[in-house]
C-alpha cells in the first residue's frame, strides 16, 4: 500500500463553489435521512391506535342521589358526574368572578336546563390527582366543592379553582344529554 494518499484541495479553484454546494446538499440529505430514522422511534411513544380508538361512553345518571356523584371512566381518565343540590347551585351562581383565579360563570360550566348536573374532568389541574368531594362523606374544602388531598387545591361547587396551587378550573369534558337520565361523554 502506498503510504501517501492524494489529498485533493477543497474549496479553491473554479470548481470550488459547485463542490461546496454538493457537499451541503449531501449533508442535508443525510440529515433528512437521519431524521427519518429517528422520528418513527420518537412517534412510537405517542398514543397508539388502540388507545386513540377509545370512543365515547354512555352513562345512566338516574341512580345518582342528590348531593352526591360518581366517577365515570372515559378514555382511561376519571370524570366527575355530580348531582348538585339547590344550595350548591345557588352558591355557584352567586360566587363573585373577581375572586376567581380562572373566572367562569356557573352557566358556562353546566348545560342550561340541567343545572343540577355538573360534569367535569376529575383530574386536578395542579398535578393530576383526583380531588375528594364526590361523596358527601369526603372533605370538600371551604367552598363546598372539591378538596384535592395532594396539595390542598380547593374547588367550588362549579369545580372552579378557588384556593391552593392548581392554576385552572377542573376542565369540562364534551358531553350531551341523550335524555334526562342518560348522558353521552365524548
Amino acid at each position: 500500500m502506498s503510504a501517501t494518499a492524494h489529498v485533493p484541495d477543497h474549496g479553491s479553484g473554479p470548481d470550488g463553489t459547485k463542490r461546496d454546494f454538493l457537499q451541503l446538499v449531501a449533508l442535508a440529505s443525510a440529515a433528512v435521512g437521519a431524521g427519518a430514522i429517528i422520528w418513527p422511534l420518537v412517534d412510537s411513544m405517542n398514543p397508539s391506535k388502540d388507545v386513540l380508538a377509545l370512543s365515547e361512553i354512555e352513562v345512566d345518571i338516574a341512580p345518582i342521589p342528590l348531593g352526591s356523584g360518581i366517577i365515570a371512566s372515559w378514555r382511561g381518565q376519571p370524570v366527575f358526574i355530580r348531582h348538585r343540590t339547590e344550595t350548591e347551585i345557588k352558591e355557584a351562581q352567586a360566587a363573585p368572578l373577581s375572586e376567581m383565579r380562572d373566572p367562569a360563570t356557573d352557566a358556562e360550566r353546566v348545560k342550561a336546563g340541567h343545572e343540577q348536573w355538573l360534569i367535569t374532568s376529575a383530574i386536578c389541574t395542579h398535578l393530576g390527582c383526583i380531588p375528594g368531594g364526590i361523596k358527601p362523606t369526603q372533605p370538600r374544602g371551604e367552598f363546598g366543592g372539591w378538596f384535592c388531598p395532594c396539595h390542598g387545591s380547593q374547588y367550588d361547587t362549579a369545580a372552579r379553582i378557588r384556593k391552593g396551587p392548581a392554576p385552572r378550573n377542573l376542565p369540562l369534558v364534551p358531553y350531551a344529554f341523550l335524555n334526562d337520565t342518560k348522558i353521552k361523554i365524548g
Binding site: 411513544m45 405517542n46 398514543p47 382511561g76 381518565q77
Partner: peptide, 17 residues
Amino acid sequence: VQWLWGGFSVGNPTLNR
C-alpha cells in the same frame, strides 16, 4: 405529557417504557 404516557393518563404503555 401524552407522549411520555403513550396515552391520556399513566397506563400500560407508560409502565412498559
